[in-house]
Simulated scan of single mutants.
Amino acid sequence: MIFHDSMANAQEKMTQVCLFLEQYHLPPTPMNYHVAYTYISKCDTALNKALDDAINSKKTIDSIYIENLYFEYLNPGHKTETELLQSVDGILTNLSKTTHESHKQISSFAQSISTCIQTLDEGNVAKSRKAIVQLSQTTEDLLQQHQVFKAQMKKARLMYVKSQQQLQQLRRQHIIDPQTGLYKRHYLNQQTQAWMAKDKSICAIAIQITNLDDFTQQYGDLVGDVVLNRVAKKVQKYVFESGLPGRTRKQEFTVLLADIEPSTANVIAEKIKKGVDRLKFVSTKGNKELPKIELALGITKRYQEQNFDELAHKAHLAAHKAHLCGQTSFIAP
């Protein structure tokens, strides 16, 4: 959940959050703080009702209970995971029961055939007819059970497709930054390790929005978010097929590129810069055009860096140097 509180409101809420944590003897962990801040902000009706009911009924408010609230109301992936596991468990249980019944029916059918063969008697038509009727009934039961089994298999196939879609959604939630649609930092770290294991050469481009704070301070958090998202979409557009764009800081993106040299990475960075330069923002108040977005770009190649954090930091310093020197970009040696 993203909050858009002013500094004054945030400080007031922080005080209330600290009092809440102190009242219920809760340690100031990120999870406890997140739930408490959301509760104080009154921006999740279901969570507030659950916590109010617990308080009114004098239920123990401890870290375990707060963790439960977090996963139930503030972590959408957990709910999807739970539903997915329950669905799969239900299908497997039904398939197990149906398979067991089918096995019983097949065993019964085999026994009926054996009995029928032994019972058939040319000299006793009535006895033979009775045996054939019993065999026919057993066959009908087996066919009905087979239809049930087919229906369960069809249901299982549909559930498989749905489960695949849910798993893809969970994976997306795990690796995609919800605000910008770019990859999260931990995913870029995973890909860096994978490329290093394959001995690929790796370049990184750091893209800093150097005047994002100015937009936020002058026009508000919502305008700042719009600027951030528009730049993110431009970054994604220009590196969609050639690299992995991710959000690594509040106002910085990092693009990972494999098997290219810094000179080529610089060309890509320049294309991103030109694309962002074409963006225009107009204020809804007075139809006034807002200032241009200012970028600083840092390009580097991996040499001795052991992980993504080291590589991204090197690119970050290169972008910072470009900004200090008044340059569009800087390639780290």
Rank of each mutant, 00 (worst) to 15 (best):
Q23R: 09
K234R: 12
D89S: 12
R247I: 06
V125H: 07
S242L: 10
A194Y: 05
H100R: 14
P333W: 04
A36N: 06
K200M: 10
S108E: 12
I209L: 05
E305Q: 08
T328G: 12
Q217D: 09
K13S: 01
Q304Y: 08
G123L: 00
Q166V: 06
A206V: 01
H4A: 07
V35N: 02
S107Y: 09
K198P: 05
S114T: 13
I268D: 00
Q168C: 06
N211Q: 02
L212H: 04
Q191K: 14
H316K: 12
E270L: 14
Q217L: 10
I40N: 08
A232Q: 00
V133H: 09
G246N: 06
T60K: 11
Q164K: 10
L95W: 04
L222R: 11
T38G: 00
K127A: 14
L290M: 07
D89N: 14
G275S: 11
A131L: 03
E122I: 10
A232P: 02
M7H: 14
E83D: 08
I132L: 15
H100W: 12
A312H: 05
D259L: 03
A156F: 05
Y303M: 15
Q23K: 14
R230M: 09
E294G: 02
H25W: 07
E22K: 08
K250E: 14
K271S: 15
K59H: 05
Y24W: 03
G275W: 09
Y73W: 04
S242R: 05
A156V: 05
Y183K: 01
Y187C: 07
T119C: 07
Q105F: 14
F3P: 00
A54G: 03
R171T: 15
L311N: 02
C18N: 15
R302P: 02
Y24P: 03
K104V: 12
C116Q: 06
F71P: 02
S41V: 00
Q152N: 13
D277F: 04
I268E: 04
A315M: 02
L311A: 04
P27D: 03
L19W: 10
A126Y: 07
S63N: 04
Y70C: 01
E252K: 05
W195N: 04
V239P: 00
K97P: 11
S6I: 04
A194S: 12
K233W: 05
N68A: 10
I272S: 08
Q111D: 15
Q164I: 14
S329H: 03
C116S: 13
K198C: 11
R172K: 13
V35P: 02
K200R: 11
